[in-house]
Write a protein that binds this DNA or RNA. Structure first.
Lengths: 242, 242
DNA sequence: CTGACAATCGTGGTATACCAACATACCATA
DNA sequence: TATGGTATGTTGGTATACCACGATTGTCAG
């Protein structure tokens, strides 16, 4: 909770001022739309008609348009010429690249975290792991998704890799539906939990190489599962409008 | 009657479609503003007053605002609450992280490029190197900057790392003034040229490890120069409010 | 002369209306 | 049936108005 939120909005929450965080309508709109896309409420390829969004979110078109620009730069939305914005689609080739980048950045962050984290950071990481394992017990995929996000966030911020976290966080948004699926897959619930515990244990034991290796195995497996899911889905992509 | 065209343009000419790049006003505005920031015409910390930009660019406020949202998500602009957008500032800590990410992604791209590039890609890389060396002779820093960008772009795209190139490209925007300074520094003109040639040679010789190592040395040196420049500037930052 | 208060102005945020260009679907007529 | 026009919907783009807030400035009382 005091842990950082997404880099974007947290600076406002840090101070304890009572009055009125200047969260603008636009920021709220971006959050809502991002959540709607990430959660799959707006599926891949869905057209985002501005005037519909206006009434769905209850804000003016200016706000919607600016929010779309932001999400467009984030890669969550693509704007087709003369047709308007749609939720970005994801093929395996792009997903593969994203997993590859995540692997490199997360391995580096885990290693640096193992090297640099002080006791306070270690405590937060242990706590994040505890909540993560609790989330594995829970049936709610959203809870699990959020817990893994917080777990990784703790690793990145403890390592001081704020820029990398920002990048990974955005990439995660683009593969969020894949992540939700891989996290939910049954084998994954077992091996994923074991692998993530190994990451945390390596960091807590200050073993950078082991942490790096654990991340590598974890993500390689995740990418493998994602590939199967995605190529299966692409095979039957006639009905992927869902 | 038409005879054969080169592979490149043939497919477009085959059908009679009018390609018609739509390029909206907003896109143009984003490009102009990005160029103004990257080139240093809008220095770090400079306020971007919307109504001024309206008359400077000759477009309406809506366009300006949407362009600012895009650049904000890109990290080139930050919006201060109740004060408006300013050109993002850069301290050494952030720059260090950016150089670190670049190092990892560029090393991976160079290695994959050495492994995967076909003859056509090799030819393009050789050509990019040739133009780069020509640019080193030229006195114009902008020419040199563009040539290095194209050189790296060729490496990333030949390796198929499109997502990574997207990320690196944006990161480069954020450290563009630093890059311009490091490229212009006199020792850099010598060693930088030598190191970049080594990168290209390793790729052309299909030696992934050598390419990776060459990138690593190149970027480590660049970061070192950047640090000196930046910390010197920060030391005298009392007067950078301009 | 100084300090407090108020008027003013500049700025960002938001909402609304309007127009042109384009695409699509539909329909009427030859 | 095929052709051509029409209606509708969506987007991009623009203009304008209003509000809230903060900074500046000017004025007036002490």
């Amino acid at each position: 909770m005091w842990g950082k939120h997404t880099d974007m909005e947290n600076e406002k929450l840090a101070d304890l001022r009572i009055d009125h965080v200047p969260q603008t309508l636009r920021e709220i709109a971006v959050e809502r739309m991002r959540a709607a896309i990430v959660s799959g409420y707006f599926p891949s390829g869905r057209r985002l008609v501005e005037r519909n969004l206006v009434e769905q979110l209850g804000v003016s078109r200016s706000v919607i348009r600016e929010a779309i620009r932001y999400l467009e730069a984030e890669g969550l939305v693509e704007v087709l010429p003369r047709s308007g914005p749609v939720v970005a689609t994801l093929d395996w080739e792009r997903a593969r690249q994203i997993y590859d980048i995540r692997l490199r950045l997360e391995a580096a962050a885990a290693a640096d975290c193992a090297r640099l984290a002080d006791d306070a950071a270690r405590g937060r990481l242990a706590e994040a792991l505890r909540q993560l394992e609790q989330a594995f017990e829970s049936a709610d995929p959203q809870v699990l998704y959020d817990a893994t996000t917080r777990f990784y966030q703790e690793i990145f911020t403890s390592a001081g890799h704020h820029v990398a976290w920002d990048i990974v966080h955005r990439l995660n948004g683009r593969i969020s539906r894949l992540r939700a699926l891989t996290l939910a897959s049954t084998d994954r619930r077992v091996s994923g939990q074991a692998r993530m515990r190994r990451i945390a244990e390596a960091i807590l034991a200050r073993e950078p190489e082991a942490a790096e290796q654990a991340v590598r195995e974890h993500l390689t497996e995740a990418a493998h599962i994602a590939r199967q899911l995605l190529e299966k889905a692409e095979g039957a992509k006639v009905r992927d409008v869902s």
